[in-house]
């Protein structure tokens, strides 16, 4: 009777208000059968980590268009690690130069999607990651 759903936190950290991308991706993930927790604009990394923990999400998807990605992504990854959420995928999108994306990936961030990527790419990426991870959430 295991009815495992993929749970995704779609969050907009930072001060920019461009939530179009976040909303389009949130709607696309829902349409792909996932449970999407949306928390609105201007989230701090602390709020994002606390929410990810309480909601026990599999994936945290961040949309960053403010140029602060090199600060925000690593901070979220670190906070998740600190709170014991070691099996969470941190992915996202925004205006992120390829070079920065590589640096972030080295710090444990997943794939980052630039402007103009099809939502289906993100959906497939998350699904594939989830399947690869195995049966679902572990209990520890």
């Amino acid at each position: 009777m295991n009815d495992k759903k993929i749970r995704v936190l779609v969050a907009k950290p930072g001060l920019d208000g461009h939530d179009r991308g976040a909303k389009v991706i949130a709607a696309a993930l829902r349409d792909a059968g996932m449970e999407v927790i949306y928390t609105g604009l201007h989230q701090t990394p602390e709020k994002i980590a606390a929410t990810a923990l309480q909601e026990d999400v599999d994936v945290v998807a961040l949309s960053v268009l403010s140029g602060a990605h090199m600060t925000l992504f690593p901070r979220v990854v670190d906070l998740l690690q600190e709170s014991g959420m070691t099996d969470v995928l941190v992915t996202g999108g925004g205006i992120i130069p390829a070079e920065d994306a590589e640096t972030l990936q080295a710090k444990g961030v997943g794939r980052l999607f630039g402007p103009g990527t099809a939502t289906t790419d993100a959906v497939e990426y998350i699904r594939a990651w989830f399947t690869d991870r195995g049966v679902g959430r572990s209990t520890e």
Binding site: L29, R30, D31, G33, V36, I37, Y38, G40, A50
Partner: peptide, 21 residues
């Protein structure tokens, strides 16, 4: 949940934002 896709958009936390931490 959406009866068609089984997915859901859960947005209640937006209004509870200041309680997050």
């Amino acid at each position: 949940s959406s009866p068609f896709t089984g997915g859901a958009l859960l947005g209640d936390r937006v209004r509870m934002d200041e309680l997050a931490t």
